[in-house]
Nucleic acid binder design. Structure first.
Lengths: 247, 247
DNA sequence: GGATTTCCATGATCTGGATCAAGGCGGCCG
DNA sequence: CGGCCGCCTTGATCCAGATCATGGAAATCC
């Protein structure tokens, strides 16, 4: 297990001591970070299979800042199947889609043993009143997530969507060229609107062509250019490092 | 033409006199509305076929508040085809997806003769610093758009997507039970990831079943319950009036 | 440590919606 | 006013990816 899920691993809630560099609380001034610390409810462990962090339809009481692990947001359709709307990794905020309406639009649950900081929305709103920089970075975060969602909602082939997904994840969790996907292929398929079998076949086909290597859930991207060519149409993805073409 | 597109129809830029009730500028206090007025660049007419308001890849210089008509946001794929990411109606803000990254993620152009208020982002950021309520409502707007985008990105049948789209549009532009879609069926298809032929066939099929009546671009919804049953899985849509089931 | 369950993998078949084709109809421009 | 072009409509065919079926390999649970 790459991540220590016990609460004792990090006592207190001083955001300035937190190792998660990309967290909202670390994006503004030191003062703002201190303010973040002051409003956080106690941190929580979230386990796969355990109770959801919140459910679709609930009144929105808190957003969650992911500290470790991976959280999925999903709805349940009429047949009882999950439809995954997003994966959230350390530094991400879960629940921004429900902020506007005050109601959770999806259910949030852990994909692997995870840890989240609980940010009560009433406190968050107060913080936004006091610190314009908090509002601004929250707004930017939501805007970026919107950009990704709009890009993903387009009509692309299984290969294109998977390539875009892999590059996106690579940017976020690769260390030294390799990464370990926290979620099962079924979950990837649910998110990308693909059957599990299609995810598997497409990955294998990419491996056969030498674009990547697979072993268990570990993926190493070998031919980035090849994937890029497929994913470029989708846009947005892998934008952070300034890798995307002007197009 | 239901909407007067000449600039002379509304001189000056006093938001408090503007008839668009759902505009951002009208959502906060009177003071905040006055502040909005003060930062607006001159209003613009936008014509179909004329120059785009902005293009994907451009540096983000302004967002646009739709005053009349309909604006579409789209990207162009490798084959030169439009992929529509959203339609914006009076009261909507165009460009929120690019706010975070500072780069326009899509091209924005008029679907019908339209009018937009130009909101320079540098001024908008200053306004957000000064008026927390502006930040808050901008954040809420973006959050709602995110909710819709996430819902739309799911895997639904042609019928379900079209039903959800019709109900969504109905909520936004119906007067007395009937509405006139501003965009062509081809555009609807591009947005919903459907071929033009499928949009046409599905609409006709719904008409045959007595769920709606079609004449030209005018649509009257006859069996709301039927459409709702289809669209409910999609979620989010038609939420404003509290019509959606708890699920 | 054996049983159960979940996940990954691969082949065979099926299908919703795309694509191709072709005609009518209205709107716009010269 | 007549010609052209873009939209809507309907039918025939095709295909990417879903679904069904089956088996092996890990992980999880008594």
């Amino acid at each position: 297990m790459p991540f220590d899920t016990t609460l004792s691993a990090c006592v207190g809630t001083d955001c300035q001591l937190c190792p998660v560099r990309t967290c909202m609380a670390r994006r503004g001034s030191a003062d703002a970070a201190a303010a973040w610390s002051s409003i956080l409810a106690p941190r929580m462990a979230a386990m796969p299979g355990a109770a959801a962090l919140h459910r679709a339809g609930d009144k929105m009481k808190a957003v969650f800042s992911v500290r470790g692990g991976c959280i999925k947001a999903y709805t349940i359709d009429a047949d009882g199947n999950e439809r995954i709307r997003g994966f959230y990794l350390p530094g991400d905020l879960v629940g921004l889609d429900g902020f506007g309406g005050g109601v959770c639009l999806s259910t949030a649950a852990a994909v692997v043993p995870s840890q989240v900081c609980v940010v009560p929305v009433c406190e968050l709103r107060k913080l936004m009143q006091r610190w314009p920089s908090v509002s601004l970075s929250l707004m930017e975060q939501t805007s970026r997530e919107l950009g990704v969602a709009l890009a993903m909602s387009g009509d692309y082939s299984a290969e294109q969507r998977l390539a875009a997904f892999l590059l996106h994840m690579r940017d976020r969790l690769a260390v030294g060229g390799a990464m370990r996907l926290p979620m099962a292929q079924r979950d990837v398929g649910s998110y990308l609107r693909l059957a599990t079998e299609t995810v598997c076949r497409t990955l294998k086909s990419m491996e056969r062509r030498g674009w990547l290597s697979l072993s268990d859930k570990n993926i190493r991207i070998l031919d980035e250019a090849g994937l890029h060519e497929l994913a470029d149409v989708v846009g947005i993805f892998h934008a952070p490092a300034g890798l995307s073409k002007a197009a």
